[in-house]
Simulated scan of single mutants.
Amino acid sequence: MTHIAAIGERLRVIGLGTVGVVAFPAEDPEAVRAAWRGLPADVGLVIVTPAAAAALGPGPLAGEDPLTAVMPP
């Protein structure tokens, strides 16, 4: 079974845990990149905040595995 993860500012991702999303709060660009590198292998979808998407750049978000979605601002 694949899981869903969320990376970004704590206030934007922590509430997603109530619906089963594994939250990786990351307040600065290095923390975002570390969270991305540390994603478990069974994560199939990663939801990122706009700030996290900017920190990751286009490379990770352009791949097909895991699928990514950017939250609206």
Score class of each variant (00 low, 15 high):
Ala51Tyr: 04
Val32Glu: 05
Met1Trp: 06
Thr49His: 02
Glu27Leu: 06
Gly20Tyr: 06
Ala52Cys: 13
Val13Asp: 09
Thr49Met: 06
Ile7Val: 12
Val22Met: 13
His3Thr: 15
Trp36Cys: 01
Leu67Gln: 11
Asp28Lys: 08
Arg12Leu: 15
Phe24Gly: 00
Ala6His: 03
Pro40Val: 02
Val22Ala: 13
Ala23Pro: 15
Glu30Val: 09
Val32Lys: 00
Gly57Leu: 08
Val13Gln: 03
Leu45Asp: 09
Gly44Gln: 10
Gly20Thr: 09
Ile7Asn: 04
Pro25Tyr: 01
Leu11Glu: 14
Leu45His: 04
Val43Ile: 15
Ala5Arg: 06
Val21Asn: 08
Pro72Met: 07
Ala52Ser: 08
Ala41Asn: 12
Thr68Tyr: 01
Pro73Gly: 15
Ala51Met: 04
Gly63Glu: 13
Val43Ser: 06
Ala52Lys: 00
Gly57Ser: 05
Glu9Asp: 15
Thr2Leu: 12
Gly44Leu: 10
Arg37Thr: 11
Ala52Gly: 10
Pro29Tyr: 06
Leu16Gly: 13
Arg12Asp: 14
Ile14Glu: 14
Gly63Leu: 11
Val32Gln: 04
Pro73Asn: 12
Val22Phe: 04
Pro29Ile: 01
Ala52Gln: 01
Leu45Glu: 05
Ala26Gln: 02
Leu16Thr: 10
Ala62Asp: 14
Ile7Arg: 00
Val13Tyr: 00
Gly59Arg: 06
His3Asn: 11
Pro50Gly: 06
Thr49Val: 12
Glu64Gln: 13
Ala55Phe: 06
Asp42Ile: 06
Ala6Tyr: 00
Val21Tyr: 10
Thr18Arg: 13
Leu45Pro: 09
Pro72Cys: 08
Pro60Cys: 05
